[in-house]
Design a protein around this nucleic acid. Structure first.
Lengths: 355, 355
DNA sequence: GGACAGAATGGTAGCGATAACAATCCGGAA
DNA sequence: TTCCGGATTGTTATCGCTACCATTCTGTCC
């Protein structure tokens, strides 16, 4: 059935390839373009025999489907957009991995962007993403510019906000209360007998999750009658390991009798612990230190670091699953909140008895 | 000049918005769609006055450009594809960040995928990416399946391979010799007087950079007359911090007099150091340990970790810049090799005098 | 034997933008 | 005044695919 008056070699030059179209594949096989299009989808009704012949031709010619044309026609872009504050933070890259994994074999492609913890950059990214007509979008946190909210609203696609519980959710939320999680950690440590609490975090409110953790800390220390909490703000969020080290020095200079220091993340906690050891202090005997996020480093570090374990991967995965439900359900989405778990992980760095 | 017989409210419902098209914006303003299209590009010739009116309408209506339609017509997708082994490894996420940053304000969008160190997954991802007709593609390493090579060849787009120097490069390369880098580290440590060298790496060749580092290690130890090198293979690459800890235990059980242990990455080195400390050993007095990659952790850790500093961010950035040159230069690309720097960073973990 | 259901395939008309070319307008030079 | 060139805007024809509907061809049932 092959088109014999236009013999094709198995090897086609790149120049040809660039303009190889579905119609040419169809001509080569001797069917219509429509049939070739159907052969690429599993649901369509094409006889096995025809599909096989088409796929052989696709292979021989080296044809690659053009989804940009397809999505224009079908009005389905096949994209899901996701914005995370940083791709270099393993908590968020775990979330990104959760999203990607959930999207595997769904035919959906992830468009990933990072906002650098900036609402303005988020706004620009949202616009850039919407130009690709994603079928859904996953955001981190609930702080967005007005224009961003308007654009999302008009786009009419399902939105999932993650990693925290916004005061005014857009659609669905997959996350947990950072404030309550930090509160749980404070109480757990107070239970162990700690009384004089310090806290290390960044200087601005850019990192809303960080701010929530701090306010959870302050509120709980107060509630337990142990206030006021001793807070050191150091560095633009997200604060680094090194800044954690510098901050703990400031904190101990100012309040030398501090018993336990909670940090906005494990990274700063690690930096703080290492700086203390470098200065000859014994953690946890001289000073106890805890983090947040349960990064890989915290279970390996010596001393291992007390922290809050958060289901980063699960946040991404569940957000994607919710979005898939909505996309397959016709683009509408219930405005529910999916709470993800967290738990205190007590380790050596806050062991009152010493290591 | 507004179209008065079809009054529009400033607020348009989401349902309307979804089908808002450039032609409707044009009608609203009283110009042709072509003029609206031009107004969105800075190079085009539209009078300032008209552009302003159009942009006001765009704002009022909440119109968002549809790039999927535009790219079909202009035959420029505006995508750059990049594949990294893992998004959770900070070395590669630094590279991804370098790419994204270089792409900012170029109007190009990054399509990011991770291969999980698998050539098969890479092949699937390459196909998925090519369906979006990227204008260029950045890969990690030089190991690709035959079909992947064929697809890339036929796609006729510039390809940049990164992070190593492939034996048979496809187009451009931005990277360094992992073997020579490791060799340099071995020599630096031999210079310090170390004689009995151990090595910790993964079990398979999936991670080609890891394999290259190992062979660089073995070759150099041999050349220095210090061979054979003591190699422990443990865990499927990329090996974790924890596996680094387990591996160093095996290594010291088998060769208790080992003086210095080189690890395939800083992460395993960190795990090894922490495990040693946990067992009461003093690093570097009892055993010296070095890593590869100069992750943030290595300068903060106590003891700080000797390693090879690699310009991860620069690799991504330069790869993107090369690709941009090629894209703007009409899609062709010289098959050059851009060598990126690396350097030995000697720190406490291999300090012969002790910390 | 004719009608008909169902499977497989084909034809046509867009999807929403842009390339390419045509048309219009304007002021200044001849 | 007339003509010309540059700036601005409009018209038309795709880009490569898929939705939608029409058509063909079986085999089955009464």
């Amino acid at each position: 059935m092959k088109n014999e008056d236009e013999p094709k070699d198995k090897r086609v030059k790149a120049a040809d390839a660039q303009k190889l179209t579905m119609a040419e594949v169809a001509k080569y096989v001797g069917v219509s373009a429509m049939t070739v299009s159907r052969a690429f989808r599993q649901d369509a009704s094409v006889s096995e025999e025809t599909r096989k012949r088409i796929m052989e031709a696709v292979d021989a010619l080296g044809y690659v489907l053009d989804l940009s044309a397809g999505s224009l026609s079908s009005r389905r872009s096949g994209f899901i957009a996701a914005l995370v504050p940083s791709i270099n933070n393993s908590n968020f890259s775990d979330t990104a991995r959760g999203i990607t994994d959930a999207l595997e074999n769904t035919g959906l492609q992830l468009l990933l962007g990072y906002t650098d913890y900036s609402a303005e950059k988020e706004e620009r990214l949202i616009e850039a993403m919407l130009r690709r007509r994603p079928e859904g979008i996953i955001l981190t946190g609930g702080s967005h510019t007005d224009r961003a909210r308007r654009m999302l609203d008009k786009a009419g696609i399902p939105v999932v906000e993650t990693w925290e519980i916004p005061e005014e959710p857009i659609n669905h939320v997959v996350g947990f209360s950072n404030s309550e999680a930090m509160s749980l950690l404070v109480r757990a440590l107070a239970n162990q007998g700690y009384r004089r609490f310090g806290y290390i975090g960044g200087t601005t409110a850019r990192d809303t999750r960080g701010s929530q953790r701090r306010s959870g800390f302050l509120k709980t220390v107060e509630e337990l009658g142990l206030g006021p909490g001793r807070v050191i703000s150091f560095g633009v969020p997200p604060i680094t390991m090194e800044q954690g080290g510098q901050a703990v020095v400031s904190l101990l200079e100012r309040w030398p009798d501090t018993e336990v220091v909670l940090c906005v993340s494990d990274l700063s906690a690690f930096g703080a612990i290492m700086e203390c050891k470098r200065r000859g202090m014994n953690v946890p005997v001289d000073i106890a230190i805890a983090g947040f996020g349960d990064y890989e480093i915290s279970s390996i570090c010596h001393p291992s670091i007390t922290t809050i374990n958060v289901d980063c991967y699960g946040i991404g995965q569940q957000a994607a699953v919710r979005l898939l439900d909505a996309v397959h359900g016709g683009g509408s989405m219930g405005d529910e909140i999916t709470l993800t778990g967290y738990k205190v992980v007590l380790r050596e760095s806050t062991n009152r008895g010493g290591t």
